[in-house]
Simulated scan of single mutants.
Amino acid sequence: MSKLRNKWPFLVIFIIILCIALVYVFRQTDKTDYPFVNDPNVIGIWSTIDTIKTIGDFNPSKYSDNNIFPSISFNFLYNGEILLSKSGGSMKKTNWYRWTNGILIHEGSKTASHYVLKQYLNKMYMLIENKNGDYSLRNKTPDYKVLVKQ
């Protein structure tokens, strides 16, 4: 019995590592090897303002009650690179994100989030698929983040 008692921490660690490996192997990923194609309308700084369930729920005059997320700003550069700022911090280059016409690509999670641009009362909005863990690990349909161009 004492031999088993000494080995159980290793067994627990083994099971945790096995579960993590299985999640990684069976997670949902997207095609991410898209070539860069410029979209001049996207160049610039965009900030998150809302989360919506579907594109049809977009209403720029009324925000949803789903606004529980950190304030994130993206600076889309001409070469497909992205600078990122969280909660009003300084813009920093990120190797995780890049973009091409119609798609925001996250290299770490291997997701390709499609976006749609909409103009309303002289403001440009980006509705972008929110492909987070619910999408990649639980196979759920992504909701949308709403960003406004600064």
Results as ranks from 00 to 15, higher is better:
L22T: 08
F69C: 08
F10Y: 15
I45L: 07
N66A: 07
S61W: 01
I49G: 07
D30L: 11
I49E: 09
N6P: 00
F36A: 03
G56W: 07
F36W: 02
V25S: 00
N6S: 13
T51K: 11
F14T: 14
P35L: 13
V42A: 14
K53M: 06
I55Q: 12
S64I: 03
T51E: 07
D30I: 12
T54W: 07
K53E: 13
I45H: 08
D57K: 01
L22V: 05
P40C: 05
K7A: 15
F36C: 02
P40Q: 11
W46Q: 03
V37K: 10
L11A: 15
V12Q: 00
K31Y: 12
I13F: 09
I55N: 13
I49N: 05
V23M: 08
S61F: 08
I52T: 06
F10W: 13
W46H: 00
G44S: 11
S64F: 00
I20N: 14
S71K: 14
L11P: 02
L4W: 01
T51P: 00
V23W: 05
P60S: 09
T29W: 02
K31S: 09
I20T: 15
F69I: 06
I68A: 12
S73I: 05
P70L: 01
W46R: 02
K53Y: 04
G44T: 09
D30F: 07
D57H: 01
F58A: 07
S2V: 11
K31W: 05
Q28P: 03
F10M: 11
